[in-house]
Design a protein around this nucleic acid. Sequence first.
DNA 1: CCGAGCATGTAACACGTTACATGATTGC
DNA 2: GCAATCATGTAACGTGTTACATGCTCGG
Lengths: 183, 183
Amino acid sequence: MSRQSQTELAVLGALSVEPMTGYALRQAIAGTLGHFWSESFGQIYPALARLEADGLIEPPADGRTSGQVFALTRTGRRRLRELLRQPIAAPPPRNGTLLRLFFGDLLAPDERRGLVEEARERAAASLASLSVLRRELEAEIAAGADAGAPYRLMTLSAGEHTARAQLAWADETLVALDQDGTG
Amino acid sequence: MSRQSQTELAVLGALSVEPMTGYALRQAIAGTLGHFWSESFGQIYPALARLEADGLIEPPADGRTSGQVFALTRTGRRRLRELLRQPIAAPPPRNGTLLRLFFGDLLAPDERRGLVEEARERAAASLASLSVLRRELEAEIAAGADAGAPYRLMTLSAGEHTARAQLAWADETLVALDQDGTG
DNA sequence: CCGAGCATGTAACACGTTACATGATTGC
DNA sequence: GCAATCATGTAACGTGTTACATGCTCGG
C-alpha cells in the first residue's frame, strides 16, 4: 500500500462518519484521530480533488452555501472498505530520544536526564489528554452510542497503554541514571 | 532541527563508536539501532559525501584497502555533541493499525481480529528479539563494559516497555472484541 | 570459476510540511 | 467595521525510499 492511499484512507474514513469541508476534515483528523494520525492541508486538498475526480466523493444532496462539503459516494464507500482491508505499511522507526540516549556517554549528566524528563512529560501530557477523551467517550456510550464507539475506545486504550509504558520507562531510567553514578 | 541533520546525527554517532564504510554503517544502523532508528543507502551515501566535504569525517590514519572507511575528525566530534543537544523533532503520529480499527464498524469481525492479532505478533516478535539483545548486552557488561553500555541498555528497555504495552493492549482488545458481540 | 555478500552510488519518484496568498463569513 | 476564524489552494522545499547500475572480493 502506497503512502498516498493512506491519506485517502484517512480522508474517506473521516467522511464516512460525516460529510465535511476540507477545513473541517483537517480539524477532525487533528482532533479525533490526532493521537495516532495526522494530515496537513497540503495533503488534504489535493487528495479531495483527486477523490472527487475519481467519483469517490461528491457534494451532498442538500445544497450548502459555506464551503465545499463532501460526502462519500457509493463507489467511495466501497473503496474505503477495500483500503481498510489492505496490509499495513509500518513506517520505519525513528525515535529521536532513544537515538540521543544511545550516545549518552557523549552528553553531560543533566543533558541525559533532560532527555528522559522531556519524554516523561510528553507521555504524562498525552495520558492526561487521553483521559479527558475517555470520559467524553464513556459519557457518549452511556447516552447510547453509535456503532463506532467501541472501536474508538480501543484506539484510545492503545494510546493509554503506550503513554503509561513510556512513563514507566522514564521513571525506571531516571532511577538508573541516578544510581549508577552516570546520572 | 531539520530532518536532514537527524541522518547526520545517526551517521556521526555510529562513526563515533567505530570507523566504518557506508555499507557497514547501514548494517550497524539496521542492527544495533534498528529498534528505534533507520536509514537507507539513499540517505547514507550522500550524507557521507557531504560530511567529508565539510571536514567532519575522513579516511582514518591507517590506510585500508577494502571500501571507503570513514572516521570522525575533531570537528566532526564537536558537531556530533552539538547535534545531540539539539531539540528533538517528533515525527507526526501515523499508526495504520489504529486508523483501521477506528473505522472498525466497516470491517468484518474476523478482519478486526486479524488487525489486532497482527499487532500482537509484531509486538511479540519485537520482544523476543529484544531479549536476545538484552542477554548479549548483559554478558558484555559482565565481561567489563565500555562507557556506552548502560545507555544501550536504557534504549533496549524502552523497546521492551513499548512492546509489552502493545502486547497487553492487544490481549485486552481481543477480549473486548470477543465479549461485546462485535468480534 | 562462480555465487554470495561487500561496496558504492544515482535517478526517479513519492511523501509531507511549511509558508504564502487569498478571500468569505460571522460575532462583537 | 473589524478581528477572528473559516475556507481553499499552491509552490517550494526537504526528506526518504526504491530501483537500478556497477563492480569487487573471497570462500568453496
